[in-house]
Amino acid sequence: MSQALIADVNASNFQQVVIDNSHHLPVLVDFWAPWCGPCKSVMPILEKLANEFAGLFLLAKINIDENDELANQFAVRSVPTFRLFKNGQSVAELTGGLPEAEFRKLLEAHIERPSDSLRAQAQQAFDQGELNQAVGLLREAAELDPSNYKVQLDLVQMYLQTGQLEDATKLFNQLPTEAQTAPEAKSVMGIISFAQAVAEGEDISVIQAKLKDNPDDVTALYGLACFLALHSEYEKAMQAFLKVFMLDRDYQEGGARKNLIKLFDMLAVSEAELVKTYRRKFQSLLY
C-alpha cells in the first residue's frame, strides 16, 4: 500500500524534492512559519490529505523563518501560502487558513489517479449497454484506489440510470462524508431525490392525462417537473416548477422552491447560463 509523501524542504534540497519530483507527480509546497496560527491549523488538514491520497502528490513544507531566500524567490508575502508545482512549474496558488474543501478541489484538478482509466472504460461499457462489465470495472477501480470516491459515485449514477433506486440510495448513504458533500455529489443527490419523487408519484401517462384536462393541476405539474428533472429535461423541469410556484408556492411545503434551488446547485457548472436565466426568473417571483 502506498504511503503519504511528506518532506521538509530547504534551499539545498528544493530542486530535488520539489522541481524534479514535480515531473512525476504534483508537489504542493506549504510556506509556513512557527509563529503563524493559521499555518498550525492548516497543517493537519494537509497531512490528512497526504495520507488519504497516499503517494499521488507530495507535500513539501518550507519554514520561511529558516528559508527566507526561497520565500523571496517565490514572492511569499504572507503565510500560509501554498504553491502547486507540476512539470517544474508553479501552476496554482492558494493563501490563508483555508478549509479542507479548497485544498481537495485544488488537488483533484491536478492529480492523475490510477483508477481514472478504469472509470473511463466503465463509462464506455455502460454507454454500450454492458452494465455488468461496467460494474466489474468500477469494482476493480475501487480495489485499486479505495480513496477515489468518484468510483462509487459513478456506480450510484449507473444504478440510477438503470432504475435501481434502492441500490443507488443504499450505496450513496454508505459513502464517507467527504464523498457525499463533494461538488460531484450534488448532481447525484438531486437525481436520487427526483427518482424517489417519481417512484412515489403517479405514472407519467396519468400525469399527462390530468394536465390535458387541467393545465393548472398543481399535483400533476409537480409530478411532471420531477419526471423531467430525472430525465435531464432541465429547462422544461424549471419551467414546470416555476408554474407550480406561481400557482401554489406552499405546495409540498415549498417543494417547487426547494427543487428549483436543487436544480440550480446541480447545474451551476454544467449549465451555468441556464441556471442564471431561471434564477433571475425565480427571483422576480419572490418580490
Rank of each mutant, 00 (worst) to 15 (best):
residue 1 M to R: 06
residue 1 M to V: 02
residue 4 A to K: 15
residue 4 A to P: 12
residue 5 L to P: 06
residue 8 D to F: 05
residue 10 N to C: 08
residue 11 A to M: 01
residue 11 A to R: 05
residue 12 S to P: 03
residue 13 N to G: 14
residue 14 F to T: 07
residue 15 Q to Y: 10
residue 17 V to T: 13
residue 18 V to S: 05
residue 18 V to P: 00
residue 20 D to K: 13
residue 24 H to M: 04
residue 26 P to R: 12
residue 29 V to E: 01
residue 30 D to H: 01
residue 31 F to H: 08
residue 31 F to C: 08
residue 31 F to I: 05
residue 35 W to P: 13
residue 37 G to R: 12
residue 37 G to P: 02
residue 37 G to C: 05
residue 44 P to R: 02
residue 48 K to W: 10
residue 48 K to R: 15
residue 49 L to C: 02
residue 51 N to Y: 02
residue 54 A to G: 06
residue 54 A to M: 07
residue 58 L to N: 06
residue 58 L to Y: 09
residue 62 I to T: 10
residue 63 N to S: 12
residue 63 N to K: 12
residue 67 N to E: 15
residue 69 E to D: 15
residue 74 F to H: 10
residue 74 F to L: 06
residue 78 S to P: 04
residue 82 F to S: 10
residue 82 F to K: 10
residue 83 R to A: 09
residue 86 K to I: 11
residue 88 G to N: 05
residue 90 S to H: 06
residue 91 V to Y: 03
residue 91 V to C: 07
residue 95 T to L: 04
residue 98 L to P: 07
residue 99 P to L: 14
residue 101 A to K: 14
residue 103 F to A: 13
residue 104 R to T: 08
residue 107 L to D: 11
residue 108 E to W: 03
residue 109 A to I: 02
residue 109 A to F: 06
residue 115 S to F: 00
residue 119 R to Y: 00
residue 120 A to Y: 08
residue 121 Q to G: 08
residue 124 Q to A: 15
residue 125 A to Y: 00
residue 129 G to E: 12
residue 132 N to T: 13
residue 133 Q to Y: 04
residue 137 L to M: 05
residue 138 L to K: 03
residue 138 L to G: 07
residue 139 R to I: 11
residue 140 E to D: 14
residue 141 A to F: 03
residue 142 A to T: 11
residue 144 L to K: 10
residue 146 P to N: 13
residue 146 P to V: 10
residue 147 S to P: 02
residue 149 Y to I: 10
residue 153 L to I: 08
residue 153 L to K: 05
residue 156 V to A: 08
residue 157 Q to E: 15
residue 157 Q to M: 14
residue 157 Q to S: 14
residue 159 Y to I: 03
residue 159 Y to C: 02
residue 161 Q to Y: 06
residue 168 A to L: 01
residue 168 A to C: 08
residue 170 K to F: 09
residue 171 L to M: 10
residue 174 Q to N: 15
residue 179 A to E: 01
residue 181 T to N: 01
residue 182 A to Q: 04
residue 184 E to C: 05
residue 185 A to P: 14
residue 186 K to P: 07
residue 187 S to T: 13
residue 195 A to V: 07
residue 199 A to G: 03
residue 204 I to P: 14
residue 208 Q to N: 09
residue 210 K to D: 06
residue 211 L to C: 14
residue 212 K to Q: 15
residue 212 K to H: 04
residue 214 N to F: 09
residue 215 P to W: 01
residue 219 T to P: 08
residue 222 Y to M: 05
residue 223 G to S: 06
residue 227 F to A: 00
residue 230 L to D: 00
residue 231 H to C: 10
residue 235 E to D: 09
residue 236 K to C: 06
residue 238 M to F: 04
residue 241 F to Y: 02
residue 242 L to T: 03
residue 243 K to N: 15
residue 246 M to E: 15
residue 247 L to A: 06
residue 248 D to L: 03
residue 249 R to H: 15
residue 249 R to W: 11
residue 252 Q to D: 14
residue 255 G to P: 09
residue 256 A to Q: 07
residue 256 A to K: 00
residue 257 R to P: 01
residue 260 L to D: 07
residue 263 L to C: 05
residue 266 M to N: 09
residue 268 A to P: 09
residue 268 A to T: 10
residue 271 E to S: 08
residue 271 E to Y: 07
residue 272 A to L: 01
residue 273 E to F: 05
residue 274 L to T: 07
residue 275 V to R: 00
residue 278 Y to R: 02
residue 279 R to D: 11
residue 280 R to L: 14
residue 281 K to W: 01
residue 287 Y to P: 07
residue 287 Y to G: 12
